[in-house]
Design a protein around this nucleic acid. Structure first.
Length: 700
DNA sequence: GAGCACTGC
């Protein structure tokens, strides 16, 4: 601890902090910023007038850093040093240093916008530019003006980003603290590889034959590529075994990895062995593997982005940024000098790579964030003029406003409604919050709570796919409920109700191949949501059991109606001649129900005329994921409302945004007309042909 | 009959 670089800069940092309200700290990996900044401030008396709060983008980081600081100070975790993450608040009245996720700090500022219990807020890892950190940056800018006399903000960032953050906070000082990484030699390829899979393979084998001891970390874009490379490596390494003096262990590493495999990655390495860890960008920041000396960087990452004009997400393989490349290389220098093989020429790095990754705020739907900011009800904040470090596009903000208006969270003048206020208190996306509110009016709150909780964790419920489990499933595993013909939301409800009736038995989950951790998470979320809804609940919150068939059907009916209100901005209409759908409310998109959906055609081979969908995502093609059948009678009033949207009024009637987007404004009613009216002859023929083509393609 | 990178309240 004593030789951490940051401690040599204590005087410099403290001088800057004493003379300024905001200070940017550029601290490379290993500088000790996460554990030491808070302790320095503590030593210098900043915890006398309030708490020093340190935000982290990830829960594990908040917990582990808090634990280490409590050890270094020799105090019990939860006393002077504590942490707060979702479902877990380990702080007390004695807590002076508090580590928390950025999301938790945002929640706190909802009930206490001035954050007056804090004397200092440190936004750690701000260069990662998580959505929550970006919102906090904007809020901090406002807050330092109001609390200049008794409040300090420290922001830690990366070399390439520090000046920008400083400019954002009126040229505040920047203190640079070196890291404690070993040097990493960068080796560029002479040419772009034809296949980065093959190139990774060749480089890995080359390292194995020629280089000394040390593990190899290989960055790939997704699970498919990881699986392919792992099996190729296994084949080739085996045939090389004679000539090599080390054994090889080849390990995949990605988000949906089973815990047993994670033990093999993070556990002790057998002697005279080289591990090849084939990972997604999870190994960039979230997980650190000890013993890595060589890194192979393809230069690509799979990224999720949102298109506000279509309401569609897509998963694209894109080039990484310079900051990301630097971060990946750094993974080779943690234990001793290392090497990073970049599978691209240095000219590509220099000329094509962006300096920093496009921040999440410019790649996501902003409905939730805009609702949150509106609910803060700060008189001096206008949402469309909100001071972001990087502003989202006007289209994105308008899209958020339209979404919020359609689900009654804001009124036609863009002002937050009573419903919207309550929605913002729920840790859910606005559509689900609205569904809960509506369900509360129709006596199915308990069921809606279950669905909302299940949807919060849906991706972690199903087991990670592999040929092995596919086989097992066919043989031994039980079939899940089928949604009674109404679709995936109802199925999720039924699954949870079954689990409830099985007394939340772990083995029950295993019988149905459901991820135990995911299901436990759902239970926690459901409890949290119930607590928040308690004060306004008009009916029971507990899981309903032993209902008759007829009662269940009535519940499903009410629940589907509530979903239709909540997902008013995510409706789709089946096309006349086949089972393709067209999205409503946005620029219409021709889409298919995702094959994983439980929704199946009826006796006449038709899917429901109208559905709500949880997500519109383009992977190989545009898909609706997680759908629920709704009635046309519920849809019609929503479409009327869509047609009457006046984005000018919603934006508060202020000229700034409208000026830039004249075309877009006129686009709104036009778009809806395409949906409502019959297209002219020529267009309709082309459209029909296209739909038939897509349908055929869909059948194949 | 296709597939989902990673976080967080």
């Amino acid at each position: 601890m004593a030789d951490l670089p940051i401690l040599q800069f204590e005087e410099t940092i403290m001088k800057a902090v004493e003379e300024n309200t905001v200070v940017v700290i550029i601290g490379e990996t290993g500088s000790g910023k996460s554990t030491q900044l808070s302790q320095i401030l503590h030593r210098r008396g900043y915890t006398k007038s309030g708490i020093v709060g340190v935000t982290q983008p990830r829960r594990v980081a908040a917990v582990s850093v808090a634990r280490r600081v409590s050890q270094e100070l020799g105090v019990r975790l939860g006393d002077e040093v504590g942490y707060a993450i979702r479902f877990e608040d380990r702080t007390s009245e004695r807590t002076r240093i508090k580590y928390l996720t950025d999301g938790v700090l945002l929640r706190e500022s909802l009930s206490n916008p001035e954050l007056d219990q804090y004397s200092v807020v440190i936004l750690d890892e701000a260069h990662e530019r998580s959505l929550n950190t970006d919102i906090l940056l904007g809020l901090m800018k406002r807050l330092v003006k109001r609390r200049a006399s008794n409040f300090k903000v420290l922001i830690t960032s990366a070399t390439l980003d520090g000046e920008k953050v400083s400019q954002f906070f009126s040229e505040c000082p920047v203190v640079r603290v070196p890291g404690k990484l070993f040097p990493v030699e960068i080796v560029y390829s002479h040419e772009r590889p034809i296949s980065y899979l093959e190139s990774s393979l060749a480089t890995a084998l080359d390292i194995h034959m020629k280089e000394g001891e040390g593990d190899v970390l290989i960055f790939m874009t997704g699970q498919d590529d990881i699986d392919k490379l792992v099996s190729k490596l296994e084949d080739r390494v085996r045939s090389l075994e004679e000539g090599s003096c080390m054994d090889a262990i080849i390990l995949p590493l990605h988000g949906s990895l089973q815990p047993e495999m994670q033990v093999r990655v993070f556990g002790p390495r057998p002697p005279n062995c080289r591990r090849f860890i084939v990972a997604t960008n999870i190994a960039e920041t979230s997980l650190t593997v000890d013993g890595v000396v060589y890194v192979i960087d393809s230069g690509y990452v799979k990224q999720r982005q949102y298109n506000p004009s279509t309401g569609m997400y897509s998963l694209d393989v894109v080039q990484i940024s310079k900051v990301q490349a630097h971060q990946r290389a750094g993974r080779a220098g943690r234990t001793r000098p290392g090497k990073c093989y970049r599978l691209y020429p240095s000219a590509v790095y220099e000329d094509e790579f962006l300096d920093v990754t496009i921040p999440e705020i410019q790649r996501s739907s902003l409905a939730g964030s805009v609702l949150y900011l509106k609910s803060l009800d700060l008189p001096d904040i206008d949402i469309l003029k909100f001071d972001f470090l990087d502003s989202p596009s006007p289209e994105s903000l308008q899209d958020a406003l339209k979404q919020l208006y359609l689900i009654d969270a804001i009124d036609e003048n863009g002002l937050i409604t009573r419903i919207g206020k309550t929605m913002a208190e729920l840790p859910l996306e606005p559509s689900l919050s609205r569904t809960l509110m509506e369900a509360n009016e129709h006596g199915c709150l308990s069921q809606a709570l279950t669905v909302a909780a299940m949807l919060s964790a849906e991706t972690t419920l199903l087991p990670s796919r592999s040929k092995n489990t596919e086989k097992k499933r066919k043989h031994d595993y039980l079939d899940l409920p089928d949604g009674s013909g109404w679709g995936d939301h109802i199925q999720l409800l039924q699954i949870y109700e079954c689990w409830h009736q099985a007394n939340y038995d772990i083995d029950w989950c295993k019988d149905y191949q459901l991820q135990v951790r995911g299901m436990k998470f759902v239970k926690d979320v459901r409890r949290q949501l119930s607590q928040i809804m308690q004060k306004i609940a008009k009916g029971p919150l507990d899981v309903q059991t032993s209902r008759r068939w007829k009662e269940s059907q009535q519940d499903y009916h009410n629940l589907r109606r509530a979903l239709c209100v909540g997902y008013a901005n995510q409706l789709a209409e089946r096309m006349v001649y086949h089972n393709g759908y067209r999205t409503l409310g946005f620029k219409p998109q021709v889409v298919q129900v995702h094959p994983s959906s439980v929704l199946k055609p009826d006796d006449e081979g038709k899917l429901p005329d109208y559905v709500v969908y949880q997500e519109l995502i383009a992977t190989s093609r545009p898909y609706l994921r997680t759908v629920c059948a709704v009635n046309i009678a519920w849809v019609t009033p929503i479409l009327d409302k869509v047609n009457k949207i006046n984005i000018n009024k919603l934006s508060g009637g202020i000229g700034r945004i409208e000026e830039h987007t004249e075309e877009n404004m006129s686009d709104v009613p036009k778009t809806e007309n395409v949906v409502a009216a019959i297209p002219d002859d020529h267009e309709s023929k082309i459209q029909a042909a296209r739909e038939r083509f897509l349908a055929r393609k869909g059948k194949k």
